[in-house]
Simulated assay, not measured.
Amino acid sequence: MMEAALLDAESSAAALPAGTRREPRMPQRRRDQAFLDAFDATGMVYDCFWHADGRRVLLVGPPPVNLVADYYLARFTALPSGNAVTRRFHSSLSVMITELIDVPTGSTAIAIRFGRETIELPIRANLSAQLAGARILFGMNRNNDLRWIGEWARFHQRLHGTDTIVLYDNGSTDYAVEAVVETLRAVPGLAHVAVPVWRQPFGRTDTAVRLNPYWAHFPQIASMSAVLRRYGAQATGILNADIDELVAPPDGRSIYAVASGLRHGLAVFRGRWIEAVPLTDAAADHRGYGVSLTDAKRARSRPNKWALDPRRGWVANLKVHPYWHWIAGRPMFSKITPDGAHYWHFRGINTNWKRSSDPVPRELLAPDADLAAAFARAAS
């Protein structure tokens, strides 16, 4: 069996100059220490890479928030030529793309003059041409059980034809990143694997604001723009699913093909909770769980997930920013839920943070026949 090829996953990151800090939205409101500890107040750039057109360079990072004036005063220079380059900012609530225009061919780094400091960032390669036509699955990982990661990858490869996985590692401590790489490369049918390491603070839900309280999860949201722009600009499809989520094949079809068949190339779908009730004492991965609440309303996992055909013209606009559960800047009326499209959301997976605190009475549960059938198909 051929192992999947390992893609270049090196990133170029930079912190804000000493003494410069990003503040939360509405900074006058009180936050608990847990939020402040997890908030990325010092990150400036998470990655720097060529645009797929080979003429521009993109910097992906957190939003400026209170630092808008500082970013506009920053100066960007291509190295080794020393040519000053024009910049445009494309910012949303949780991420900003800095677009550098007409960067000279052969440039190897970008120098950023920010305040009194100058920071140099190597320009990383764009892999979109190498991955033209790929079916990409991506997510972010921190200390998830390697068996769960392996089953997540196998399921989507077998039922959807996933051939490329980009799994960002947010500073796992239970194992080395090489263990994640080996787990993914061993999955039959995968052609390419990338495991970029982003150690920036992950962020927490902001209870001080009501509108979009998940806004401060900067690394995860920014990684979505990096996947789209650095790896997937010419892919057949991109699918976002966390390790505790398995996407159902609508009527047996690949979700990538379903999305490509839609007018705007965007499929969105909700989920169904699979309860943290193991089928056997030896439950080791997703296949060890398989029951959901008989009450369909209570069993529903409401957040949307999505699959996208990135080759559509509207996606090229850098004001389009993928998020966890939606895509900012998408065209009106582009959000379509195809018949049969949904995902299974496993409470007993993903370091158990979604595990219910109270045991669910057995009489309220029933086997999920669709999930069992999907597992059987994936094993055939």
Rank of each mutant, 00 (worst) to 15 (best):
L239W: 02
L239E: 02
N240D: 13
A241H: 02
A241D: 02
D242A: 10
D244N: 09
D244G: 08
E245A: 00
V247I: 15
V247F: 03
A248H: 14
G252W: 08
G252H: 09
R253G: 03
R253F: 05
R253T: 04
S254Y: 01
Y256N: 00
Y256D: 00
A259R: 04
S260Q: 09
R263H: 14
G265N: 02
V268E: 05
R270T: 07
R270G: 09
G271K: 00
W273E: 04
E275M: 09
E275V: 09
P278R: 05
L279G: 10
T280I: 09
T280M: 12
A284G: 15
D285S: 02
D285Y: 01
H286V: 04
R287E: 02
R287G: 03
R287W: 05
R287F: 03
G290W: 00
L293W: 06
D295K: 13
D295E: 15
D295Y: 14
A299C: 08
R300A: 10
R302T: 15
R302W: 15
P303E: 10
N304F: 13
K305C: 03
W306H: 02
W306F: 05
L308E: 00
L308C: 03
D309I: 01
D309N: 12
P310N: 06
R311V: 08
R312V: 14
R312S: 14
R312D: 12
R312N: 15
G313P: 13
G313M: 11
V315Q: 01
V315A: 05
A316N: 13
A316H: 15
L318N: 05
P322C: 13
Y323E: 10
H325F: 12
W326P: 05
W326G: 08
A328N: 13
P331K: 05
P331N: 08
P331I: 04
M332P: 09
M332N: 13
F333L: 10
S334N: 07
S334D: 05
S334K: 02
I336Y: 05
I336C: 09
P338F: 02
G340F: 04
A341F: 01
A341D: 01
H342T: 15
Y343T: 00
W344S: 02
W344F: 08
F346E: 00
F346C: 00
F346T: 00
I349S: 00
N352C: 13
W353N: 15
W353Y: 14
S357M: 11
D358I: 11
P359Q: 10
P359F: 11
P361W: 08
R362M: 11
L364H: 07
L365V: 03
P367G: 07
P367K: 07
P367D: 06
P367F: 04
P367S: 06
A369G: 13
A369H: 12
D370F: 09
D370E: 15
L371Y: 03
A372V: 05
A372I: 05
A373L: 14
F375C: 07
R377F: 06
R377T: 06
A378Q: 10
A378N: 10
A378E: 07
